[in-house]
């Protein structure tokens, strides 16, 4: 037992929950500040209703950008066909140009060669924009744990909803779409951009 350093008066440190992020909004996207009832003072009654209408409009007419990569793209096509009609939720307008889309459904495995293309398409989308990672390969690399597949699309773009499955059936994709719509209506902010270093630093990641 060596010399003990002078012990500081022990004060109970407030317990920090490491799973609560330090900041709630993304650094690269316009911060979606709480509006309406989520505001600290309850919000102005008139603006609350307007923002509710805006969010209802945004969630009910999400226009996906066509980003079907592999097998999940076929189930995405089935989701837009007549049996599982994505048009019920206002999302049947698959825009080929990312400039006109606000939702990117990354359907399929992302290979290393395709990753810069994905990021470029994501950057070309105007705000507000959301990303659904459809399928196991988009969520975490899926069956393919190897040199050629990016282990999860969230290494490249910020993902709002993950839909597991290989491939997920169209009704699972529609469930994921519904979750995203709820997220939009509840003003939940987008996750931080993985390519922005500072935004990915949270409590507990010391490197």
């Amino acid at each position: 037992m060596g010399v003990e350093p002078e012990a500081e008066p022990t004060v109970a440190k407030p317990s920090v929950n490491p799973w609560v992020p330090v900041q709630y909004y993304s650094n690269t996207q316009a911060p979606r500040l709480p509006r309406g009832l989520s505001q600290p003072d309850g919000g102005n009654i008139l603006l609350t209703q307007v923002s509710k209408v805006i969010d209802w409009g945004r969630s009910s007419s999400l226009w996906p950008a066509t980003f079907g990569l592999a097998c999940c793209a076929i189930e995405m096509m089935s989701a837009s066909a007549s049996r599982w009609d994505i048009s019920r939720f206002g999302a049947e307008v698959f825009r080929a140009s990312p400039r006109q889309a606000d939702l990117m459904i990354v359907a399929g495995r992302l290979s290393v060669k395709m990753a810069p293309v994905l990021r470029r398409i994501y950057d070309q989308m105007p705000e507000p924009k959301w990303v659904i990672a459809m399928g196991a390969c988009a969520a975490c690399g899926g069956v393919f744990n190897n040199y050629a597949i990016v282990q999860g699309v969230d290494k490249v773009v910020p993902v709002d909803v993950y839909v597991p499955g290989c491939p997920p059936t169209p009704d699972m994709l529609l469930h994921g779409l519904n979750l995203l719509q709820e997220k939009i209506r509840n003003h939940k902010p987008n996750p931080p951009d993985p390519l922005d270093y500072a935004a990915t630093r949270y409590l507990g990641s010391e490197d």
Binding site: A70, R109, S111, M114, F144, N146, Y147, A148
Partner: peptide
């Protein structure tokens, strides 16, 4: 753009 390394897997 979809090379998955299936043969190696």
């Amino acid at each position: 753009y979809l090379h998955t390394g299936i043969e190696k897997t």
